[in-house]
Design a protein around this nucleic acid. Structure first.
Length: 948
RNA sequence: GGGCGCGUAGCUCAGCGGUAGAGCACUGCCUUCACACGGCAGGGGUCACAGGUUCAAACCCUGUCGCGCCCACCA
């Protein structure tokens, strides 16, 4: 117990207390017998730094964790960071770029080592910043999505899902990011609306065929002229009379000269454009489907781009030399120009087009035909939908359930492979394809392949697909490969390479004898970061091992996250959690909104309107920032953050600090018991009841995840009840010469109430409250690990007593101000029509009335201020001081207000339906209110009459 | 094209069936012995608009207008 400084210095307190909490193990007190309460943090990117959205997300989590810890629960907040595949690789590549160096100058192994080195020296700064916010995470068991155990879990999941048929390899169109040179998932593509053009081309009909109207060409329109180099058909609707006669005929594709069929497909809408549409199965998602229906296998579809989206030769070899290597938008211009020159550009139309952009790279995404790994999300979604539908997992606010259902019910296969180096490498190894000697492979047969003996019977004439060996370890994969190939080719010896390129390189040199050795090589791709994040709630607790932690803390209690990653992350955790553990990972998913700037704009670095939470902490203290975010978090709404609010809650912190300082200077110390002290004084009995009610409101707010209510209730209690009334009302009881027993009781009740405030406020303002906790007493333990001790009960008589007193004081103050009585003037009063109870109260609260209303009992008579309160009329003689006109106006205004209310209530009571149909309580209340207003009006009119 | 949400005091937002609330801002007064990052007292709202349900509507229903977000293959 030490003296509370005159000024409150958050910075010093925060650093000291956080270090103390962390080193003392307070973030995870041992409570083996308590009920667990678990939250897993949405793991921030290891490259990340704390932005205001993190501050909100983690403040809310910390409020929940600290609240439940105070409630005695075994609270665990699991923490860690995400390896963030693309983001992290980009950071390190950018560093290389600054030195005119690049990733491909290194081997994969060396580059990955560089990333680990970056992580060791520069990564995870956000974990320090979370500490500054006050986050009470279990740092002692911090995890990383690429740490050994977690990586093992990721690999196991991949293998298990593969073995169940829930992961498969497929050749189809993916969203290809030509800048990052990797596939990305649907979710990582954002559609932007831009002004663009719509080019109408004439495709000449082949073989002298004509349309019904005699034209010798079909007009097709496109927003992507360059893809015509890979066109494979023109589609028309079977019901379209203009084109019925040419279905099955061919057009001569301009520029490349390829002959392509005119096919019938419902995709072609007679109402749109010319009704005919060019089909480029290798470069358009719709066309891919049309192509499939038309009988093109994925392997046959023409591809005219390389990985950089520059024009590449197509398999038919028909792309003119001058286009090869041309950048895609340059190729567009060149093709339009060439079509124009050929007289085949029908017209150009301006129109708004929707373009897909990579959310990280910011470049236009290219649909591109590649082999990728897919998760069968559709199958996984079913049970994950059921988990929410059954109520096993609840979304708060519930409106997000609709969003969740809508997405899950229309979920598409999830592409999980990424062409990156940093991440969890896909545990698949491939071996060469093989074909029987009788079958000649096509000239484009791209891969390593082996000719089987002519008499090889097992495979008949079928070409064997490139086999994949999916296994948790390389040794297992090798074993599987040996097993597979030894049946086909008993004389061969297996050689393992880390990558296909390494294998091919070796093949070029003479060291590798392809005749007698069989290579297998590991898949070079890594998994989508979200694939591993999806395992976070159980992977961090030791899964797949059956650990004590997993049994005790899983499923977790609450997930707190932004609605913007419901699809990316929440849905995928639900799917993986249910599939792999049989249990949905959360009881509740709390979704908060986005933090916007004071004008409601989304914050972003590029706009320069982002608020730095660390700057706010420096300026106002972490507690003030936390309180602001908590108070502004109302369900289903984004937060417009205004620094003025932070300032306001800093003032609140100062207010509490000063209140505690005042208490200390009056000999008030922390209580030694959780139970409220015995109290005889109404004001003390009253504040005990107020604490009890406040605690109940806070519990209700927390149970309903109403963070704003929690903050609001605590704020109002501390400032408007405790400081403004209780401390003021008890000052006379503590003054020199006051009754010693009463003073002692008041000190002990005040100390108890202040303790309750510290406890109630601690989840939101941990630093300030912990500091005061120790300043006010010698404690057995820190506040952070205290247990919420609300005892006591509400005393109705004391409540009525103090409510009456507060009402009277307010009434007097108001009247005094209105008639311009100087604040310093001490007045006497005489009560008329007061009950015995009121006379008793006036006597008992004389000191408070003298201090707060500046009135004392005196003789009646003379003109003066008159006021009506609780059925009594008070006369305060003001001979010579009173402004009679002002007093008259005041009384008249008050009387008129009372009469208006009285009449309104009377009218309602007189209306036919009300007394019969309304709830009896409502009727009774209306009657009582009407009578009270009527009596008040009468007294005020009487007072007015007396004034003359 | 679907879906969701929002329009309440100058600003930011609670309230979601019984006579409009908070914080900030604003006005007046106060060097009252915790706090001017304070105290006391105030002013300020036909709850977007129009219908409907109800004894009673900011609150429920329908529509209109305005704003925002998400999803979707019109070439």
């Amino acid at each position: 117990m030490t003296i509370i400084d005159k000024t409150f210095d958050p910075a010093e307190i925060e650093a000291r207390l956080y270090a103390h909490w962390e080193s003392s193990g307070a973030f995870r007190p041992a409570r083996p017998d308590a009920e667990p309460f678990t939250i897993v943090i949405p793991p921030p990117n290891v490259t990340g730094s704390l932005h205001i959205g993190h501050a909100l997300d983690n403040t809310l989590q910390d409020v929940l964790i600290r609240y439940h810890r105070l409630k005695g629960r075994d609270a665990l907040w699991v923490v860690g960071t995400d390896h963030a595949g693309i983001a992290t690789q980009m950071v390190v590549e950018r560093q290389l770029d600054e030195r005119q160096d690049k990733r491909t100058n290194y081997t994969r192994e060396d580059f990955v080592a560089k990333v680990w080195e970056w992580k060791r020296t520069s990564g995870g700064q956000i974990t320090q910043q979370l500490r500054r916010l006050g986050a009470s995470c279990d740092w002692a068991h911090e995890r990383f999505t690429m740490d050994e155990g977690f990586s093992a879990a990721v690999t196991k999941v991949f293998v298990d899902l593969y073995n169940k048929g829930l992961i498969y390899r497929d050749k189809r169109l993916v969203n290809w990011d030509p800048k990052l040179k990797t596939a990305i998932s649907d979710l990582e593509v954002e559609t932007r609306e831009l002004a663009g053009q719509f080019w109408h081309f004439r495709y000449p009909l082949a073989d002298g065929v004509r349309l019904a109207d005699g034209r010798d060409h079909i007009v097709v329109a496109t927003t992507r002229p360059e893809t015509m180099l890979a066109d494979m058909a023109v589609a028309v609707n079977v019901a379209d009379p203009r084109y019925a006669s040419v279905i099955g005929k061919q057009v001569l594709l301009p520029v490349t000269g390829r002959r392509i069929p005119i096919i019938a497909d419902d995709h072609a809408d007679p109402e749109l454009g010319s009704g005919a549409v060019k089909i480029t199965p290798g470069h358009d998602f719709n066309d891919f489907e049309v192509g499939r229906r038309a009988g093109f296998a994925a392997g046959e579809m023409l591809n005219m781009f390389d990985a950089d989206a520059n024009v590449a030769p197509t398999a038919d070899g028909l792309v003119p030399e001058n286009y090869i290597g041309m950048e895609r938008f340059a190729a567009r211009k060149a093709l339009v120009a060439e079509m124009d020159r050929l007289g085949l550009l029908d017209r150009v139309e301006d129109r708004v087009v929707n373009l897909p952009y990579g959310d990280r790279s910011g470049v236009v995404i290219e649909p591109w035909l590649t082999d990728q790994w897919y998760v069968d999300a559709k199958t996984l979604a079913g049970p994950a939908i059921d988990a929410v539908r059954s109520g096993a997992t609840k979304f708060v606010p519930a409106t997000w359930e609709k969003t969740y259902f809508n997405w899950m019910e229309n979920i598409q296969p999830w592409c999980v492979s990424r062409q990156l180096w940093w991440g969890h490498r896909i545990p698949a190894w491939y071996g060469p394809r093989a074909w029987p000697a009788a079958t000649k492979p096509s000239k484009n047969w791209p891969d390593w392949s082996i000719e089987l003996p002519a008499d090889f019977a097992l495979v008949g004439s079928t070409i064997i697909e490139e086999p994949a060996f999916v296994a948790t370890t390389k040794a297992e994969a090798i074993a599987a490969a040996i097993d597979y190939y030894s049946k086909l080719l008993p004389d061969y010896e297996l050689v393992v390479f880390d990558s296909r390129s390494e294998m091919l390189e070796q093949t070029m040199s003479s060291t590798f004898d392809a005749k007698r050795q069989l290579p297998i090589w590991q898949d070079e791709d890594v998994l989508d970061t979200w694939f591993s994040s999806a395992l976070w709630p159980f992977g961090t607790l030791g899964w797949p091992e059956h650990t004590h932690e997993l049994a005790r803390y899983y499923p977790t209690s609450v997930l707190v996250t932004g609605f913007d990653i419901i699809f990316f992350w929440v849905a995928r955790m639900m799917m993986q959690g249910v599939e792999l553990t049989g249990t949905p990972p959360f009881a509740t998913v709390y979704c908060h909104g986005l933090v916007r700037d004071a004008k409601g704009q989304k914050m972003s670095k590029s706009k320069g309107n982002s608020v730095d939470p660390l700057g706010l902490i420096d300026k106002y203290g972490a507690d003030a920032l936390r309180f602001t975010l908590t108070a502004m978090e109302s369900q289903g709404r984004d937060i417009k953050l205004d620094e003025k609010r932070v300032e306001g809650y800093r003032n609140f912190a100062t207010k509490l600090w000063n209140a505690a300082r005042f208490c200390q200077s009056n000999g008030i110390a922390g209580s030694t018991s959780a139970v409220p002290p015995a109290a005889t004084q109404p004001v003390n009995r009253w504040i005990i009841g107020e604490v009890v009610q406040t605690a109940a409101r806070l519990d209700a707010a927390m149970a309903a995840f109403r963070f704003d209510d929690y903050a609001e209730v605590a704020y109002q209690f501390v400032w408007s009840r405790f400081c403004d009334w209780y401390l003021e009302l008890t000052k006379p009881l503590l003054a020199e010469g006051a009754d010693a027993a009463v003073a002692a009781e008041t000190r002990s009740v005040t100390g108890w109430a202040l303790d309750q405030i510290l406890v109630m406020l601690h989840p939101v303002m941990p630093f300030l409250t912990e500091e005061l906790w120790h300043k006010l007493g010698t404690r057995e333990h820190d506040l952070i690990v205290a247990t919420w001790p609300v005892g006591g009960s509400v005393d109705a008589a004391a409540t009525a007593d103090i409510d009456w007193l507060i009402g009277l004081i307010t009434e007097v103050r108001s009247a005094r101000t209105e008639v311009n009585v100087p604040p310093s003037a001490r007045l006497t009063f005489a009560a008329e029509g007061a009950s015995d109870e009121v006379r008793d109260r006036l006597e008992r609260h004389a000191a408070a009335l003298a201090r707060l209303a500046r009135i004392a009992p005196g003789a009646a008579g003379g003109s003066g201020l008159q006021l009506v309160h609780a059925e009594a009329t008070y006369t305060l003689p003001l001979e010579g001081i009173i402004d009679l006109a002002a007093e008259r106006a005041r009384l008249d205004k008050a009387a008129a207000a009372a009469e208006k209310e009285r009449d309104m209530l009377a009218a309602r009571l007189a209306s036919p339906g009300f007394t019969e149909k309304a709830k009896p309580e409502a009727v009774d209340k209306a009657r009582a209110d009407r009578d009270a207003r009527a009596a008040e009006a009468e007294r005020l009119r009487a007072a007015l009459a007396r004034l003359g």
